[in-house]
Amino acid sequence: MTALQEKPKAVAPSGPPPRRRGKRATALAGTDKLVLAIMLGIPTIVHLLFVWIPTLGSIALSFSRWNGIGGFEDIEWIGVENYVEIFTEYPRFWPAVQHNLIWLAFLLVVPTCAGLLLAVLLDRELRFSRIYQSALYMPMVLSLALIGFIWQLIYTPDGGLLNSVLGLDKPVDWIGDSDINLYAVLVAAAWRHTGYIMLLYLAGLKGVDPSLKEAAALDGASATQTFFRVTFPVMKPVNIVVAVVTVIEALRAFDIVYVINKGRNGLELLSVLVTDNIIGEASRIGRGSAVAVILLTISLGVIIPYLYQTFSKENRT
């Protein structure tokens, strides 16, 4: 047996529970234990202090009325009033929820399909494949704020590229018309997201065992059949990652609408409502925090199953 607590390479699913092995930690030399504690402790403190404690703070503040001025003694605690107001009165809330959902649906459908298609097309011996890939995922490295700037050059009603190319008699107000501006912005967001999805699927496709495909081909399956019956199901882990990445991206969406018109007039998003309420000239910290908590709850609805999926598998291997 080893004195150190090195993790054995493979632990059987029914292996000893961590608690029992934990006892043997005494086997580590004193200094090593201390070093290890510091190595784990410092990052954990930083992470907890600046990410999780503020998160808890937001939850607490969501039950308050506070204009952000003065100390904590100025905070008035009002229970769930903020939530009631948000759900019943706040005129921008439900539109924001709707826009976030549209955002999510759009990102789940368009960039995912486009990314998957491009990945499938590029996952073969193909001349210039790398050049194509580079071009397709280049938008990834640009910030969303910058993308907001660049796409406004395309969308401006007077003299923008799109209206000029379309050459309509009556220019379309891509950014100002609240019936279409969300989709106009979504195209810009999808423009950036597609390359990412393509890359994830490319990696996934390369990881698929070629013998599976060969076996399917021998059974007389067409290429399409092989893809949907063999390849796609095997890529389940990638599909999950794509789903999580997309959901988080959709919930976090902020920079691009904020740069374009501060998230007003058809571009309201939950993240914008949080920002508007907590920073800005007249803060309503309580209401902003309550929207943040709603956003948090939705996010956790995705994060927790994902963690469960990822780490329960880990325990088994």
Binding site: F254, V274, L295, F311
Partner: peptide, 23 residues
């Protein structure tokens, strides 16, 4: 620990802004 770190990364940033500023 690993779960805390992974989940923390996925949080929407706006959620922590106000308390972070106070902190």
């Amino acid at each position: 620990l690993l779960m805390i770190f992974t989940a923390g990364n996925l949080l929407p940033q706006q959620v922590i802004v106000t308390p972070l500023w106070r902190l």
